[in-house]
Design a protein around this nucleic acid. Structure first.
Lengths: 211, 211
DNA sequence: GGATGTGAATGCATTCACAGCA
DNA sequence: TGCTGTGAATGCATTCACATCC
């Protein structure tokens, strides 16, 4: 099978989110045009994206919503639950542990780590904050494949290295710094300030251009 | 001047972040190769990106770090402070208000709103949570151009409409739903679950492909 | 020598447009 | 008729490669 373009996988999650919204409205079928318009995309792009994974639609009808949801979940790997760990129990870390939507989407945070001794042992619901030294055995015991980094920038690379060594397969990095991982480990990064800077840029620069 | 490709503005923030890191290490100059490698990009791309905005480097030398930082900040519009408001004082909202890095990067959260009467009047530092009815006058009084939405999905579009009507120029949406705004308003969206789904996809699907 | 700045060439992603099926 | 699936055509982004300058 062909290699999947990067952008396709990013949109796949959005398709799923939108399909579930249509399902809540009791829609049985949906066309590529409707799905696309709800996300600001063209119908051709929706069809092409889905086409990388198989033939899911029916000419003249469109896609069966429930069916396509199941298919996309299998593709994304969210038809089963993933155990996830969090490193960094600060402001953001606490919000992420409390974030209900993760569990609803199949991501269960089952362990929390912090390097600050004062935080170790503190409980968030059923989960006690652990020392980083316990990473390897907890990862093995709980079969954890995904990790979220929410530590200050200076600690992020060290934490990432420890996670990789302990066998983590994917990392979501919220620390405002670039981290390196081997190509065998999936990496996704979000910098909250960068998100605002992009808005600032558009308002400041792009918008004054057409004058 | 030419229109700036989308991807360029996204990388500009990363260049700034990396340049500031080099400055903390007392580096005076940096080449496009070094800057690129620190972010996993090619030297040609760094030069081409910066080239959209002017000629900032010196052949044989590279870029002056302090100088380039100032230039990029002006381009991004973060050479001055932006007042920002937040709607939704839940788990995530509280973490965002407490997020120190925003202020350090020139984004000051000066007002917080929530639709839940039980939360109105609660204080986060010097900021009291306000009712949404106060949006227009607070936006005008505090000269707020940027807004962060951190409300549950069902409320997001309504909130966005109110923000747009009240004159907000840019919106960062954390609600897990697509929202529509007029083209004159800048929009950036992050769905935390989608970020994990992309990792799940890479591990589940992409990685098994080479076999 | 060592680096930038930039047209030209390549490669990737999106859109078009239409055959084919319900 | 209405819609999918998909090669072909277009458009956008990245990389190459080299003239140019410190």
């Amino acid at each position: 099978m062909d290699v999947i373009p990067n952008r396709v996988s990013q949109r796949l999650s959005l398709y799923l989110r939108q399909l579930e919204a249509f399902q809540r409205l009791d829609r049985r079928t949906i066309s590529s045009l409707q799905l696309g318009q709800s996300l600001g995309l063209t119908d051709a792009q929706v069809r092409k994206d889905l086409g990388y994974f198989g033939q899911f639609g029916r000419p003249g009808i469109g896609y069966l919503v429930a069916d396509l949801i199941a298919k996309v979940k299998r593709i994304l790997g969210t038809d089963k639950t993933w155990n996830v760990l969090l490193v960094g129990y600060g402001n953001l870390g606490r919000a992420l542990v409390a974030h209900k939507e993760f569990a609803a989407k199949g991501f269960q945070i089952v362990a929390v780590f912090d390097s600050d001794n004062a935080k170790i042992g503190r409980k968030s619901g059923a989960i006690a904050v652990q020392a980083l030294s316990e990473l390897p055995c907890t990862i093995a015991r709980e079969r954890i494949a995904l990790a979220i980094i929410a530590v200050p920038p200076d600690g992020a690379q060290v934490v990432a290295d420890q996670l990789v060594n302990a066998g983590i397969k994917g990392i979501l990095n919220f620390a405002p710094v670039s981290i390196n991982v081997p190509p065998s480990v999936a990496l996704n990064a979000v910098d909250l300030s960068v998100l605002l800077e992009q808005l600032s840029f558009q308002i400041n620069f792009q918008k004054k251009d057409p004058n």
